[in-house]
Amino acid sequence: MPNKKILVVDDELDFLKLMKMRLEANDYEVITAANGKEALDLIKFRKPDAVLLDILMPGMDGLQVLKIIRKHDKELPVFMVTAFSNMERFEAANKLGASGFIVKSNDLKKEIENITSAIMLSDKFKGQKKV
């Protein structure tokens, strides 16, 4: 089974670097984007299996990107990444069809484990639909 391809979108390049390291340690193929426009291009051309999308970004923010993603693809797992837990933001993202959340200040090891299972679930769901 080929490795799952995950797109990480964040304007913090340091974070991207560490995240890439963490995810690759978990056997994911990681592609990264530093802004929303790049992310949308990569989704279009590289077709990731899941997206980790930072909410706070200059220019187009995560919620806007999510909105555009959901216009074309309602099933792609998109996890919103925030610096800290903020219920209002979570709710707004939920409404736009976010698949889950990652809080940066939390233990990312655990957060990755959580999304891994989420991706697998969505994968299964996807497969069932195809059949």
Partner: peptide
């Protein structure tokens, strides 16, 4: 928060 998270993540890694 952001640099702190990054630093923490670095150490965690």
């Amino acid at each position: 928060r952001t640099p702190l998270s990054i630093t923490k993540e670095g150490i965690s890694l």
